[in-house]
Nucleic acid binder design. Structure first.
Lengths: 237, 237
DNA sequence: AAATTATGGTGCGATAGCGAACAATGGGAT
DNA sequence: ATCCCATTGTTCGCTATCGCACCATAATTT
């Protein structure tokens, strides 16, 4: 297997590292394909590995009494498992799994911790990423508190769109309903509204993003804040 | 003014520090009384100071288009401003202000950063605290997504109760309604329900906690997770 | 003591989303 | 080509909460 080149990785967190920091991680990055719903981080279990998504993305959810609620989305801009491990906990009550299949670069928690100890610059970048994740989660609170289903759906579509190539998301209404914590029929109606307004185009198992700016009108500012923090602190790709 | 003693501070994050780490911070801690609604951290402004609450607590809110929504609560267990500063951002899109007046120990961001650079053990403790804060915010997402007003109110009361001495909270329905992102009349009804079930006793501008376990029944597991992480990672006080 | 303001209590129509059905449809399997 | 079933579309009554308005009561000021 050819060594990974920083210029060819698609994860923008890895891209943003200094060449020296990337070299620290490179020997320990293992490419891996991911399947829909594949678990990456289990709740309250020691975290053995972290994952830099290259294609596809993962959800971070809180699993509570009934059903799970998504709190964050991590794609090629991030690192799944970063928050607990970088903050010094070997586990977390949250859970992460693949939401859209693709590829990740896996690294053992041990090696990541060692690399971070060697390079404080590396630690700094990753901690700044954790900050953007915290902002994202905070905006998710806002979205649930202030937006109706249609608005939350619009926000979710925008965030997914950022993390894929092209304009077409492959997912079912059922799936969306779980992530947003609402019933499936409600998703169908909300999607129809979005489609009627020319914001998206729905096909079976597919949602095509037609007009991002029209979607952004619905989210009451809950989209874009975390993204701006990322651009400011990590890199403006 | 007498030097602060670690044994007599009430902030449990300061208490949890090693004596050497506390000594690093001590010269820079300035006691300060706080007023209701006093701003501690402004949104998108350089953070000059951080605050260890001693008495009272602060809210972290996301200010968006319309109204602000509370995402977290920081009292004598924590450090206001910890998340952005420890994660390497000099500012944050969120805002923090005093929710219940009292006392804080103020420290300049400059001095805190310097101390953290000198002692990685100090940094580790503070980062673990940031982790617990992240968990708290995640559970706030869950609360908004899965609980009705009564449940969210119960959770909020429990969290406040942890951060005060005694059983009586001084606050108005109006205030609660802003924090929970609902209308004032709804808070009145929810409080009446809680009171009818013997969980609390309401007086004008006052809410007395009568039965914590009955309150915990309403929150669907959204209370306690962050607190358990704190006990596990910082100290079981 | 009277006036004023802040706070809490209550009622009513409107709406969003739930829960639970059932119908229609498209695409993969055989 | 046909069948089957996952997926999507649609409907209906129900409940929580909103938005608004109005009144009651306590605290504060004069």
């Amino acid at each position: 297997m050819p060594q990974l080149q920083q210029a060819t990785v698609r994860n923008s967190l890895l891209k943003a590292l200094s060449p020296a920091d990337f070299a620290l991680l490179r020997p320990h990055l293992e490419p891996m394909t991911t399947q829909l719903r594949e678990g990456l981080i289990d709740a309250n279990q020691p975290i053995q590995e972290l994952y830099f998504p290259e294609v596809g993305f993962a959800s971070v959810v809180t699993a509570c009494t009934e059903g799970q609620i998504e709190v964050g989305l991590i794609g090629r801009e991030g690192l799944v498992g970063a928050a607990p491990v970088l903050l010094g906990s070997d586990r977390t009550p949250q859970q992460s799994f693949i939401q859209m299949s693709g590829e990740v670069l896996r690294i053992s928690a041990l090696e990541l911790r060692a690399a971070v100890r060697k390079s404080s610059k590396l630690q700094d970048v990753l901690l700044r990423y954790v900050h953007t994740l915290m902002v994202q989660i905070s905006m998710t609170v806002y979205a649930h508190a202030a937006l109706n289903l249609e608005g939350r759906l619009a926000r979710w579509l925008l965030m997914c769109h950022d993390r894929i190539d092209g304009d077409e998301l492959v997912l079912t209404h059922e799936f969306l309903s779980m992530m947003l914590g609402v019933q499936r029929a409600g998703v169908t109606l909300a999607l129809q509204n979005l489609e009627g307004a020319g914001r998206i185009k729905g096909r079976r198992k597919r949602v095509q993003i037609l007009d991002r700016s029209k979607l952004e009108q619905l989210v009451g500012g809950s989209y874009g804040v975390a993204e701006a923090e990322y651009a400011r602190l990590i890199g403006g790709a």
